[in-house]
């Protein structure tokens, strides 16, 4: 690995831009990783190690790594961090970067499409079950409401997700 200041600056600016504003406070003490359930589960690039990679300017090199999606958002890292890094925000900023580069798995794309079309990321047809228990077949959700779907699509189209060009 070379130390390339341009790449380091770019990685830091990207993460700060996506909300990981404390990244430069990190002194690599490792307290976050000591309590991280994701690290314990074996995800290699979480907390301390993710920040290290980013501070080495390895933004593109790690873009396909799926560790960030292993973060459970428990925020224990934020509690124990002695420097106010808010590591979870860095992980989420990296996720946003990945999402913006469409660097996430295809299964995630499917659920995004579901969300866009029905208002539900995960959706199964409820009609049969509802009939069995004596409820009206059509539930009062966006999945069966054309106007609600249009409103959801308007929100997504005009938000950061719309900019991904998925839909």
């Amino acid at each position: 690995m070379l130390v390339e200041q341009k790449k380091i600056d770019e990685a830091v600016a990207t993460i700060i831009g996506f909300g990981g504003t404390g990244i430069l406070n990190c002194v690599q003490c490792g307290a976050c990783s000591a309590v991280c359930p994701g690290v314990k589960a074996g995800f290699p690039l979480l907390c301390r190690n993710l920040i290290r990679s980013l501070l080495n300017g390895q933004l593109e090199e790690i873009i396909e790594d799926s560790s960030s999606w292993g973060c459970q958002a428990c925020n224990r890292c934020t509690e124990v961090c002695p420097q106010g890094v808010r590591p979870q925000e860095v992980v989420f900023a990296f996720r946003r970067y990945q999402a913006n580069e469409l660097a996430f798995s295809t299964s995630a794309v499917t659920s995004q499409m579901n969300l866009y079309e029905t208002g539900h990321a995960v959706f199964t047809d409820p009609k049969e079950l509802r009939r069995q228990v004596g409820l009206p077949e059509v539930p009062p959700t966006s999945a069966f409401n054309k106007q609600a779907q249009e409103e959801i699509q308007a929100l997504i189209d005009n938000g950061p997700m719309g900019e991904l060009g998925l839909f």
């Binding site: 690599q28 490792g30 000591a34 991280c36 314990k40 290699p44 124990v80």
Partner: peptide, 30 residues
Amino acid sequence: FKGKVGGLEMLPEDKLRVLAYDMESAESIE
């Protein structure tokens, strides 16, 4: 071990579970 201890938890027999981390191998220690 290089890495700050994140926490301690009380265990039976007055022992302590040490939640630590090894910076060099990038692995958690417990």
